[in-house]
Simulated scan of single mutants.
Amino acid sequence: MRLASVTVDGVRRGGVVDGGSITLLTHTVDDVVRGAPIVRTEVVELADVRLESPLHRFNRDVLCTGWNYWDHFEESAGKREGQDPTSRPLRPTFFTKGPDTVIGPFDPIAYDPSLSQKWDYEAEIAMVIGRDGRSIPEQKALDHVFGFLVANDVSQRDLQRAHGGQWLKGKSLDATMPLGPWLTTTDSVDLSEMRVQCEVNGVLLQDASSTQMAFSFAQIIAELSEGMTLRAGDVVLTGTPSGVGNARDPQVFLRDGDVVVTRVSGLGELRNTVTLTDLGGR
């Protein structure tokens, strides 16, 4: 099942996407993730509505996993401006990004060159927690996942390096993380392999399989939840593969007008245009 968010007559509604139509629900996707029943109402054509981010109500920051594809870890060696780890991490690397980063699958990506000159793309698979849990065993971890989405963890590399090696600031500028296009429930996802891709202006820059992940979806949940409660509605990003702009030679960074397409097989596609935006309040 694919759950999307749309606004109809000024009211945000959840909906079930089926082909070229969407069946509206009485509750939002945020409500359904937290246990509200799926009550179907009228059917409208997808062409007549605009898909928004499936989720709008966040319990906290978006939870993220870094360095979860070894090819990405290795491609950035020597390019982290003195912040390279001495070896591959033995356990998942976690960080967070602010929820105000989240935008919809077709919304503009905010771009303010006065804040950063190094805007980078990162195609990712995102998980959404559907059942609360703490210290969740790995073998039961996927029982706590409601579904999966496509995300792009757009990052500002110079900000990422400028604050003591902590990634929060360089990952948290407003309106920079596309999410969607819908939330695909776990029972509708082939977890054996998903293709993760990112194109910029029609050029394929990232192309990998989820089988290349260093730590599986279940391992991420088990490790993250150890002693820490995960709650229904939490969003967990699972890392990006190789091909990021900062690691290329020459480097490739996003600029005003660039069209970024992020897709994951079985989950859908995001299409966002980088758009000059005043984020500094000038």
Score class of each variant (00 low, 15 high):
V244S: 08
Q139F: 11
V244I: 13
N246S: 13
S21Y: 13
P99Q: 06
G243D: 09
D84Y: 12
C64T: 03
S172P: 08
V189F: 01
A222I: 05
I38N: 11
E74T: 15
M1D: 04
V260A: 09
R157F: 13
P37F: 10
V196P: 02
R161S: 08
R80P: 08
L183Q: 12
V150N: 13
G133D: 07
D190W: 06
M228A: 14
I103L: 02
L191R: 05
S5F: 02
S216T: 14
L3C: 13
L237I: 12
G164L: 04
P105Q: 03
L230A: 00
D187L: 07
R131V: 08
A110S: 07
G233F: 00
S210G: 07
L183V: 10
F146R: 00
A162Q: 14
L55G: 03
K97N: 12
A151I: 00
A123M: 06
G281M: 04
L63M: 06
G180I: 01
G66H: 02
V43D: 04
P54C: 13
A162N: 10
T65H: 11
S76D: 13
H163K: 07
G66N: 01
S116Q: 10
S242I: 12
G10Q: 14
Y69W: 09
T273W: 08
S188M: 14
Q251K: 12
V17F: 05
D112F: 06
P85R: 00
P37D: 08
I129F: 03
D158I: 06
I136D: 01
G14K: 12
V11Y: 02
V236C: 03
N246V: 14
Q117E: 15
D234P: 00
T7Y: 02
A141C: 10
D190E: 14
M194V: 06
G227C: 08
L254K: 12
L142T: 11
T28A: 12
Q251H: 02
G245I: 14
T96K: 00
I109T: 09
S135M: 04
G35T: 04
G15F: 03
S209A: 12
E74G: 13
D18C: 07
L191H: 01
L191P: 02
G227T: 09
T86K: 15
L191D: 05
L115E: 04
D30G: 01
V62S: 00
T229Y: 07
Q166I: 04
T96A: 09
D174M: 03
L279D: 11
T262H: 00
T65P: 03
E81A: 10
S192H: 02
R50Q: 14
S242W: 10
N152E: 05
F215A: 00
T93F: 09
S114W: 05
P250D: 10
W167S: 12
F215I: 06
G281H: 12
T96Y: 01
F146L: 05
R161V: 07
L279V: 04
S188K: 15
T176V: 06
V189P: 01
S209R: 12
L173G: 01
H144Q: 10
D120K: 03
G239Y: 05
L25Y: 06
I38S: 01
